[in-house]
C-alpha cells in the first residue's frame, strides 16, 4: 500500500490548560479532497497550524508522503501539565519552520486573508516563486539571472490566468473584492509548487454564486495540478459537494469521519455541529 500523502498521528496541541486539538489522527491519500469540519473553536485552524509549522504540536506526529516532518512529545513544564493521551509514544522531536514545510510541498491559504498588502496582484504571486530560486544575491542584483526571472514572471502570469485575475494584475492586492482576494491567495499558494494544498475556509465571506464557482474551481485545480487538497470549511453545501471524505472535530476531538453522506447522517455530528439536518 502506498504511503498516505498526509497522515496525522495522535496530534495534540495544548495551550496552557486548554487542549485545542486532542489526539487527532487522520490521513489523506493522493488526489483526494478531504474536509475538516467542526463548530467554531473546534480546533480546525490549530490543526492546520500544526501541520504547516506555525505551532509545534504538544504531542504527536505529522507524516508527509510517509516521512515524519513534525514530531513532538510533552517535555519540560508541559510534561506535568499535559492532559492528553499517548504521552510517551513519540520520542523524536522535529519542528521545522513554516518556510521549510512549504519547501517540502505543502502550501496553504489563510482564514483571515493575508495578502501582501502594499504589493500588486502580480507581485503577490511572483513573491511565492522566490523559494525555488537558483540565483544568489549577487547574480540577482547584477541581473545575471534574467532567464530565471523571466520564467518566474511567466509562471506568475500563468497562474493569474488560471485563477482569472490576469486583467487585475497591476491592481493593488487589497483593492480586489473579497472573493478575488481568496482566489489570489490560492494562486499565490500554487506558485510554491505544492503537492498538498491546505485551504482554510476558502468560501468565507463569499456569496452563493461565488461559492458555486469556487467548488468547481477547487475540483479543477485538483485535476489540473495533480494536487491533494485538505480544506477547512463552514459552508456545508461546498463541503458536501466536493469532498471525497470528511473529518469532523468538536472540542479538539475527532467525533466522526467518512464519506459525506455518512457524516451527514451521523447522529453525533448532527447534535454537535449541524443542529438541523439540512443546511
Amino acid at each position: 500500500m502506498p504511503d498516505h500523502v498526509l497522515e496525522l498521528k495522535n496530534l495534540t496541541m495544548q495551550f496552557g490548560g486548554v487542549v485545542a486539538v486532542n489526539d487527532l489522527s487522520m490521513n489523506i491519500d493522493k488526489g483526494e479532497i478531504v474536509a475538516l469540519i467542526g463548530p467554531n473553536g473546534a480546533g480546525k485552524t490549530t490543526a492546520f497550524n500544526c501541520v504547516t509549522g506555525v505551532y509545534a504540536p504538544t504531542n504527536g506526529q505529522v507524516l508527509f508522503g510517509g516521512k515524519v516532518i513534525v514530531s513532538n512529545h510533552p517535555s519540560g513544564k508541559m510534561a506535568k501539565m499535559y492532559l492528553g493521551a499517548d504521552k510517551d509514544k513519540f520520542h523524536q522531536v522535529a519542528a521545522p519552520s513554516p518556510d521549510k514545510i512549504t519547501r517540502m510541498g505543502i502550501a496553504r491559504t489563510f482564514q483571515n486573508i493575508r495578502l501582501f498588502k502594499t504589493q500588486t496582484v502580480f507581485d503577490n504571486v511572483l513573491i511565492a516563486t522566490h523559494l525555488h530560486r537558483t540565483s544568489n544575491l549577487f547574480t540577482a542584483v547584477l541581473r545575471l539571472n534574467s532567464s530565471e526571472e523571466k520564467s518566474m514572471r511567466e509562471k506568475a502570469m500563468h497562474l493569474l490566468d488560471i485563477v482569472g485575475l490576469a486583467d487585475a494584475k497591476d491592481e493593488k492586492a487589497t483593492s480586489l473584492p473579497y472573493g478575488k482576494q481568496r482566489r489570489l491567495e490560492i494562486a499565490r499558494a500554487l506558485a510554491t509548487d505544492p503537492t498538498l494544498l491546505l485551504l482554510d475556509e476558502p468560501a468565507a465571506g463569499m456569496n452563493p454564486q461565488e461559492t458555486d464557482d469556487l467548488s468547481e474551481f477547487i475540483v479543477e485545480l485538483r485535476n489540473r495540478f495533480d494536487l491533494t487538497i485538505f480544506l477547512i470549511e463552514h459552508h456545508m453545501a461546498l463541503v458536501m459537494d466536493i469532498s471525497d471524505r470528511i473529518y469532523v472535530i468538536d472540542f479538539g476531538k475527532l467525533i466522526a469521519s467518512g464519506l459525506p453522506q455518512e457524516v451527514r447522517d451521523d447522529p453525533e455530528v448532527i447534535t454537535a455541529y449541524l443542529g438541523v439536518d439540512e443546511d
Binding site: T52, V54, S97, P98, D99, T102, R103, A107, R108, F110, R114, L115, F116, I127, A128, H130, L131, H132, R188, A189, A191, T192
Partner: peptide, 8 residues
C-alpha cells in the same frame, strides 16, 4: 506570517 508560509 504569510511570507514564511510562502517559503521565505
Amino acid at each position: 506570517v504569510a511570507a514564511e508560509a510562502m517559503g521565505i
